[in-house]
Structures are given as C-alpha cells and as structure tokens.
Design a protein around this nucleic acid. Sequence first.
DNA 1: CAGATCATTAACCATATCGTTAAGTATAAG
DNA 2: CTTATACTTAACGATATGGTTAATGATCTG
Lengths: 127, 127
Amino acid sequence: MVNDLSDRLDTVFSALADPTRRSILERLAHGEASGTDLAQPFSISVPAISKHLRVLEEADLILRRKEGRTHWFRLAANPDSPMRDAAAWLEHYRQFWEAQFDSLDTYLQAASDEEQDPDDSSNISGR
Amino acid sequence: MVNDLSDRLDTVFSALADPTRRSILERLAHGEASGTDLAQPFSISVPAISKHLRVLEEADLILRRKEGRTHWFRLAANPDSPMRDAAAWLEHYRQFWEAQFDSLDTYLQAASDEEQDPDDSSNISGR
DNA sequence: CAGATCATTAACCATATCGTTAAGTATAAG
DNA sequence: CTTATACTTAACGATATGGTTAATGATCTG
C-alpha cells in the first residue's frame, strides 16, 4: 500500500496515463462490472486487462469482489481515494492556469474600469 | 505536438507521474526560472533535469525562452493547456467520488432534486 | 466426473523511462 | 583567443511497462 503523498501521486498519475485504464474507469463509473464485461470492448487479451485491473486496484482506484469464479470491480469511492489527491494537486494549478489565462481580460477590464472607476486599487491576485 | 484528447491525457498524466517534474512545476508556479535554478534543489545530474524539462515542454506544460546561453522556463498558461484536459477529466470523477462518499440519504436527495451542489465552485468543464 | 468458463500467473519480448558519464554546442567573459 | 558557463545530445545501463501465448486455478454445469 502506498502511503506517502508524493508516492500516491506518482501511482495515481501513472495509473491514469494509460487510455485502456481510463476507459475501464469510465466504464466502472456506470456501475460494477465483471472482468469479462470490462475486457469485452477491447481488442487486447484478457491477461492484459487483468494486469490493468491489478494496476488500478493497487493504486486504490478500484475495488475487487469475488463471487464464485467471477471477479466484480467497482470504483473505490472513499474519503482518502488517491483520486482526491490528484484532483487537489491539479486544482492548485488550475487556479494558476486560469489566472494566467484571464490576465489579459482582467487587465483590459481593469484598464477600462479605471476610466469610470478610479477608486479601483485592489489586487486581483488571490494567492 | 499532441493533438488527440486521449493522447494529450496520456502525455500530461505521465508527465505528472514523476515527483521531480511535479516539483519543477511547483517551482515554476512561483515564476520563471533558468535551467540552473531548476536543477539546483535536486541531487540528480543536470542532463537528467534537462530531460525532465524536455518532457514537460513536449507535454505543452512549460515554455522555453532562450536568452543568450540561458534557457528560461515558465508554466505554459493558455486556454488549451493539457492541464485543463487533465483537470476536466479528474473533475468528472471527483464528483462521482464525492457522491459515493456522501451518505446514502445525500445520494437519495441528490437523485430527488437532481440539482447541482450550489457550493461547487470548481466546475471547469467546458462541455 | 468431465468439460466449459472466468480469471490469474508465468515466461517472454519490445519499447519506454530515468538515471548516469562523456562529449558537444553556443554564448559570455577575461 | 582561451577559458568558463549554461545547457543539450549521445551512449549506455537498469528497471518498468504493456503486450503476447501458454499454463494453471477455481468454480460452475451437464
């Protein structure tokens, strides 16, 4: 099990860096599915899917339940899902990215406001 | 240059799956820095840093500006940054994860009034 | 029991990744 | 011109990743 935040981020980002694994997660967002269900849409072999499922499971992104010979998989939704760590990490940068993206707009808006509203001395940056 | 969404997600998630690269991005969030600046905090060799910078650059996460012999790097903040794709992808799942984490009655309530959480200020999805 | 089904593990291969050291390129400074 | 500085490229090695086929395990079904 992965405990350190940086290790968790490594693990979750690399788990998400594969299109087959992202597809599997998308499928699981619609509900629990068996290994066969999950393998069906792909042209790769069943063992390859099995390995992807293992990667997702070890990243704590999915959970496995065995019922007879069938393995059922579902998204691991819990308060310390590594997905939250990833989302939090990205969110931090999203704010930066949007601030940068908005800066020209904001500048132009501030410049035009200044003509009508000279009282604007506030700092735009939130961080 | 990476164009397909799935390829962009592959590229950005794998770029983010390395702690050194995430550290570099964190450093660059504070402002532009030279290669030397960026290499300084790490115990790895300068060529190793150079490679990480190339990976981030090719993922369109950073931009390079050459001034004499010095290379200056900054975060690539633009409307179609792949970081946005990554954030949007995760955001979709974050909602699912939080919905699952919330209690059953919250789920039932959400199902009955079928409205968005007014507290949710992080909707960045363009779709 | 015998065979079919669901899935994993083993063994292998090709390619990618992350690091190294050594050499090369380009620019600045003495 | 010579040397120092900033950085990249080349060549290499160890390990990881993503796929394959073949074999194995475990459970259901006739």
